[in-house]
Structures are given as structure tokens and as C-alpha cells.
Design a protein around this nucleic acid. Structure first.
Lengths: 346, 346
DNA sequence: TTGTACGCGTTATCAT
DNA sequence: ATGATAACGCGTACAA
């Protein structure tokens, strides 16, 4: 209840019989301040319980030490890992995060971008919504010179850095792996073709087929939102096919779809991997729980988040420029588990 | 590169030949402003591309429209759901979230609290770290009258609201269910006894045993951090017991521990539920993937987050007081799946 | 090395 | 219904 007045640099100044300017400088280790005075200022500050007023500071300096983050959805294990990495990297340099989600819709994404802009974030980190077709809503940032870093679901843009993994190669490897297991009718569960991650995974899939002289079959491409329901639906789609034309393998663009497709197929008596081999993408916790364990691509959301923020902060500090480093590609590895080991099974 | 100057209310004022005061009032729908002037102001504002400077506003009004959130860890499905609920509720009233994680350690939690305080958040939402023993680090908030809302992992405090579920009753119900399946040697995998959620779950477990005249056996209580490794370790612990003294059921305080304990036991040839029945807590996605599907307690992180933020904002608006509503208990339901249906199996 | 004086953009107070 | 003015707390050009 005691509405105590805030301690300001003036209080410290008065306390020490020096000027507020000196206090201001002393507090941020300005080079021209006497070591002794600086020490006295620090002591007085902590004694009086001084706390920098970030608004006053931001108002003057135009710096907020706040980064804006827009993710498609908060409740996903991958996104949560990314945020953890971002928070750690930001914290290390004294930055805070303002986080919002687009719920996979452009309109909310636009609104979020406006909020971030109004809040004057020092930089923006974005993973695009499912249906975003252009990035006009980010123009205010570009025009004002506020750095934007895309991660995972990126958009080609000259002045921005993108932090991704090599989706093409990973998809290629996983498809190649299935081909080497003897699979020839490999179905692909893909996502929205507006998003690089899904087009690249499809591209890798197609290229692998080509390299193995397997022609691409449109019937074996199933595009969806890749959620639990989509996985189940894909299974129904497969079950409706004549047994002879059914796929002998499924490569899903994420683990959620793969796993729920598996569950439905298993319930229908399909054996995995002997009838149909499976592979997913993400190395989600569920991939280690499903039986048989799911072959997938592991990549660290944590490191993506960390790299994205570190790059952004470096840029803010003038250490690196977003023009110089346009794309950061993080490692991703194929993890082979029983769901695709056709030769070992039985 | 074009470092354009920001548009201020003075620019609008000049544009319309009125005073900045009027503009300020018009912009926020102050009652004493002429409808017509208000309209003109709004038009000029959008025409000139005006954006409120939140720092200047916060500096003057002492209001930040920002809520601080401290969670134990970001990368958990439950936490992610909570954040989604919080973000939606906050967004509805124009509030932003600054999110940080304690990584389950008090020291980081203390540091986070200081940052939040320095950033002058209007309110704080906290779920405590694993080893937090007191909340002295929140005293600055209490002293300054900044409302604090605890959620999930709460701490008894008179001036704060807690948003939780009835962990005791849920644990009681789940234990009762196992007892009714005929289980008599029910093992409990519990968490840190500093945290309400785990003490309450243990309490419910014990009470159910008592009501069914089953004496509590210390050997059947396994306290851990409840992560994947802990689940596996618990399984090893069980496997080391003489078969005759092994539990005939396991009730874990979260799904992660339950599932990974199951996986290890299954690998050792133990049949579930016939040899050992299983129940978890959380209704995590993995509970629907493990075979047999895991009996658990479902409760919505989303709603917890939503309720916590809504309550906090209501309090800030003076609609409700944290003194009046001290605890909000959200519904949670027992979900019975095959992992515990002893009578149906075989 | 330290101090003076002013401005950042908004809102509260008091006046008209 | 509108305006003039000061104040919020800090940072910096300029001065000493």
C-alpha cells in the first residue's frame, strides 16, 4: 500500500552532492568518469534501491532492449524449444522478449506485427503463419531499418537473415533411406506449399524419387495442415485405396501427422514397417513413444532460437550485418528407428 | 535507411490547428471531446501514420500494459498451452507479455523477477521453479502493490490469487480407480515436495489408500524430477525388486515419467496393465500414443493461462480484487484408458 | 573529470 | 469542450 516514490538519478545525485549527469554516466560505466566516483554512485544506487526507469531511458535513447517474436502457434514442442533458446540468448545480452502467436492466420500475424512495431521492439523474429502470402505487414520494419530475422518458416528477403535447416537435403535423405529399404510407392504427407519448409521437403522427396528412377505419383501426395486429425485422415485415405495400389511407405512432413496416421493404420491391422514403412520430421517426443519408434529428422529448435536471437543482437550491435549473413543453416540429422527398417523386421 | 521522424501528437495538433492536449484526449476517447473533433483527430492520425509512443505514455502514466510471466521451463507442452491461453486473454485487453523461464532454478527465478520489476510490468504471473523455498524475491511486487498471480505451481499468500486445479481430488480419484481395478500395491512416482502440485497429488494418493484400508508403503513411493530419465530410472527400480514385492500399479504425477517408465518395463517383458497397471497426470500428447494408451488426468493449460491473465487484468481494472478471489480452481477430469483397465484386459 | 540546460512524447492539472 | 503548462526520468550537446 505504501506508494513509495521511485528513486531517480536525481536522488542519487543529491545524496552524493554531484550532478545527475555524472550519476547517469557513472551508472553505465562511461569512460570519462572517475573510478572512485563511479564506485560511490554504484553504492548509493544499491543502497537507495535505485532501478533504472526503462521508459525514460527508451524515450531518450530510442532503444528498448526488447525483441518481438511472432510464432505460428505457442503450443507445440518445437516452438517451445525455439523460445527456450531465444530466451537464453536474449537474456545473456540483457534483452527481453515480447511473444505473440498468429494462430496460423495472416490477419492475426498482421495485427501482431503492428503491436510489435508500436511497442518499438529493437528487432523482430518471425516464423510465418500457415497462410501468409506476402510480408507487406513487415514493411514498416524494413522502412525504419528495424532488423527482421526469419526462422524455420521463412520468406525470401534481401535485407533479412533466415535461420533454417536444410529441409531439402533432409527430405532427400529420408526418402533415399526409404528407397533403399526397397520401398517404391512412397507417399508424402505434405504441408501448405506457401511455406518453404514444406516445399523444400517435397522437393527433396521428389528429387530422391527421380534419382532412383521412381516416377512421382500424384495419388501419393497428400497435402494437409499436418495436425493429429490430418494424420488420421491420411490413414483413412490410404485405407480407401485398393490394397494393391497402397503405398509401401509414408514420409510425413512432421511427426504429429506421421504418428496419428500410424495409429489409425495399426488399428486397421496394417503392420509397420512390413506393410508400410514410416518416416516423419522433427524428432518430437511422440516419435520415441509410438511403436514402432519413428524414423525422423532431428533438429534442435533450441539452437534455431539461439542462433536467430544471437544473430539479431549481433546485428543490433553492428557486429554483423543482415546483408552479409543472409541465411544460417543449422545441422539436422536423419534418425533411423524401427518404423522404417523393413529389412530388419519380421 | 530513410530515418523518418516519428509523428507525434504535436504534428497532428498542428495539422488540425488544435492543441496537443485535445489530440491526446481525442485519441483515447476521452468523454469531454466533441465527436466531430475526435473524428478529425482519428483521421489525421491515420493519415499521418501516427503511432503512440508507449514509452512517453508509460513514463507519464506509470502504466505499461505489459504483464510479466515466469515459468519453470518453456519447452513443455503444458506450459506452451498455458502461454497460448495467456496470450489470447492478454491480447484481448491490449496487454503484452514478457516471458521468461527459470529453468527450474530459484536463482534464475530471482533474477527474472528483478528484470520484470525493472521493466515495470503491471502484473506478474508465476509458476514456481522446482526448488523455490520462499517468495522473498517477490516482495518488491507486494510492497509496491503490483498484483501477483500464481498458477499451477503456487505459493500460499494472502494478497495473491492462485489458479490451480484440485490436485488432491484428481489424485484421489485416479488412485481410487486403480484400487477398484483390484490393485493393492500401487506405486507413486512423485515430484518435489516443495511444490503444491506434488504434495497434493501424494496426499490424494495416500487418502485413497487409507479409505480402502491399504497401508502406505514407503518402498512404493519414488520421488524424482519426473522427466524422461526419471521414468526410466523408476522402471529400473521396479525391476530390481523381487517379483513378489513389485507394484501391481503405478500412478505417476506426470505423463512423461509414466510413459518412460512403461517403455522400459515393456522392454523387460512386463505386461501392462495385466502385470502392472499405469496412470499418469496431464493428458500430454504422448499419453495417447503410448500403448496401451495411458489413463491420466486431463486439465487445460490453456484455460489456466486464460483464467490467470483474465483475473489479473480484472484486478488491474479494479473489477475484482486479489483479496476477494484468493483461489481459482479449474476443472480436471479423470480419463480412463487401457493402461489401467485390468478387468477388461485379456 | 564534472556540470548546465534542454528535449524525448505523453498525460495530469488547472484554467478558460 | 478545449488549451497552456508542467512534469514524468533520463541522456547528451555543450560548457567549464
Amino acid at each position: 500500500m505504501a506508494e513509495e516514490k521511485e528513486i531517480t538519478i536525481y536522488d542519487i545525485a543529491r545524496h552524493l552532492n554531484i550532478s545527475a549527469t555524472t550519476v547517469s554516466r557513472g551508472l553505465k560505466d562511461h569512460p570519462t568518469i572517475n573510478k572512485n566516483t563511479r564506485k560511490k554512485i554504484a553504492e548509493a544506487a544499491s543502497k537507495l534501491g535505485y532501478q533504472t526507469n526503462t521508459f525514460a531511458s527508451s524515450l531518450r535513447s530510442k532503444k528498448t532492449y526488447t525483441l518481438g517474436i511472432i510464432v505460428p502457434r505457442l503450443n507445440s514442442y518445437f516452438v517451445a524449444s525455439v523460445l527456450a533458446g531465444m530466451e537464453d540468448a536474449a537474456d545473456k545480452d540483457g534483452y527481453n522478449l515480447i511473444i505473440s502467436h498468429s494462430l496460423e492466420s495472416v490477419s492475426k500475424e498482421i495485427q501482431n506485427a503492428q503491436t510489435m512495431f508500436a511497442k518499438r521492439v529493437d528487432g523482430l523474429l518471425v516464423s510465418l503463419a500457415y497462410d501468409t502470402e506476402n510480408i507487406d505487414h513487415l514493411l514498416p520494419f524494413f522502412n525504419k531499418g528495424i532488423p527482421v530475422v526469419f526462422f524455420d518458416r521463412v520468406f525470401p528477403h534481401n535485407d533479412s537473415t533466415s535461420v533454417i535447416i536444410d529441409n531439402y537435403t533432409s527430405a532427400y535423405q529420408i526418402t533415399k533411406h526409404l528407397l533403399e529399404q526397397g520401398c517404391r510407392r512412397i507417399m508424402h504427407l505434405g504441408g501448405n506449399m506457401l511455406r518453404n519448409v514444406y516445399t523444400e521437403r517435397l522437393r527433396g522427396y521428389k528429387q530422391a524419387l527421380k534419382d532412383y528412377k521412381v516416377s512421382f505419383n500424384k495419388q501419393l501426395l497428400y497435402i494437409s495442415t499436418l495436425n493429429e486429425q490430418s494424420g488420421t485422415d491420411a490413414a483413412e485415405y490410404i485405407l480407401k485405396m485398393k490394397p494393391a495400389t497402397r503405398p509401401d511407405a509414408v514420409f510425413a512432413a512432421n511427426d504429429t501427422a506421421a504418428v496419428h496416421c500410424m495409429i489409425r493404420l495399426k488399428a486397421a491391422g496394417i503392420r509397420i514397417p512390413s506393410d508400410i514403412a514410416f518416416a516423419g520430421f522433427n524428432n518430437d517426443p511422440i516419435s520415441k513413444v509410438i511403436e514402432p519408434n519413428l524414423t525422423t529428422v532431428n533438429y534442435s529448435g533450441y539452437h534455431i532460437g539461439e542462433a536467430a536471437v544471437t544473430n539479431l543482437i549481433n546485428h543490433l550491435n553492428g557486429i554483423s550485418s543482415t546483408k552479409k549473413t543472409n541465411t544460417i543453416i543449422l545441422r539436422s540429422d536423419l534418425i533411423i528407428r524401427e518404423s522404417s527398417e523393413k529389412n530388419k523386421s519380421l
